[in-house]
Design a protein around this nucleic acid. Structure first.
Lengths: 192, 192
DNA sequence: TTAATTATTTGACTTTTATCAAATGATTTT
DNA sequence: AAAATCATTTGATAAAAGTCAAATAATTAA
């Protein structure tokens, strides 16, 4: 069986402490997958039936719009869960890619196995609910940023609230995440 | 006990069919609240401990930004659930108001009672998870609209995907929902 | 370590959207 | 039904952001 890192257990216990019984039941379903830079965890158009816990590395979620521009929608670092939410929840084709920005180690849990765990353990279902609630609130915050702030203010929001983004994400990816052009982002950085 | 309308039961059954036992357990916790136009279901700054099922009427969720502009973040019609998500989930002060746009009839479920139901019935917890997942995906879609589309395209998205918004929401509210100014929305409507 | 590639910045210009003011249209209240 | 209020449109102008091209900087690979 996979040796599960503490970081994963801590991640869970922080959201919803689980009984020994639940934890033990989860372990056999976990596998490890490693990705090298530019590998895809999820490909647009495929059904994503896996949830990834990022042990190390960084990933981005993006899609290609009508003009084949890449639009980045999410960035994931170590100790976070990466999923293509629409696809994973509905088991329909993914609208987005998830790609490793650097070499990335993940723990994988299959959709099907997660459903089994949900069925078997109420407290795991609760973990799922709490996770969904948390993500919902995070996405909502980002939605309001995009709804209300100017290019400059969006950048300042990131500086203030997600400083690690500046360090670890190429500006060309960050720009579309902020809904602005690379050149605008560069100019906005120059001011201030 | 409150006579619960079919629409509410149907709403639930469509997401996660519940046993008779669960349904019967929910009923005693439901109350009815009616709001006249401009009444507040939720006030910014207060902890929102209620979830509302809208039986009839329309509501808007909005907040006041730094310049006391109203920013509309969500619109709710009959047969949908209105919550101030951050506040309801975390039981911290609400960042938003929820206000009736017309006379509105709701069924109310208290946070505390919902937690009891979650504890008692795994299948109600599942309903909660599925609802959170669904809302997450909806919010994510709107986030991408705001991230990628021009004023004109945002309006066309609404025309195409939320035609009832055009009919039922004053343009002055719709504008900030779309992250554009009222005058721009009006101009964009003129074209095409 | 140099060449090649990739990322970021800068400049000149265009397009889009915001702003402010006023006019028109619609709705509500007396 | 007229007055008052509220919602939407229109016009002129300003500000913000996008576009295209090129320069510079940083990183990667031979």
């Amino acid at each position: 069986m996979l040796p599960v890192p503490d970081s994963f257990l801590q991640f869970i216990q922080q959201i919803q402490p689980l009984s020994q019984e639940s934890l033990v039941a989860i372990l056999p379903f976990l596998t490890q997958k490693n990705f090298i830079k530019k590998d895809f965890l999820v490909k647009q158009g495929n059904v994503s039936d896996e949830l990834y816990f990022i042990m190390s590395g960084t990933v981005r979620e993006y899609f290609e719009d009508a003009n084949t521009n890449e639009i980045n929608t999410w960035f994931g670092f170590e100790n976070s869960i990466a999923i293509s939410s629409f696809s994973f929840f509905s088991q329909k084709p993914s609208l987005t890619n998830i790609q490793a920005m650097e070499d990335t180690h993940t723990i994988v849990l299959k959709h099907e196995d997660l459903q089994k765990l949900f069925n078997q353990f109420h407290e795991i279902e609760r973990l799922g609910r709490l996770l969904a609630e948390q993500y919902l609130v995070q996405i909502e915050e980002m939605k309001i940023i995009l709804q209300t702030l100017s290019a400059k203010q969006r950048y300042e929001y990131i500086l203030e609230n997600k400083p690690e983004f500046i360090k670890r994400i190429p500006l060309k990816y960050l720009a579309s995440f902020l809904g602005i052009k690379l050149e605008t982002l560069s100019r906005v950085r120059g001011q201030k």
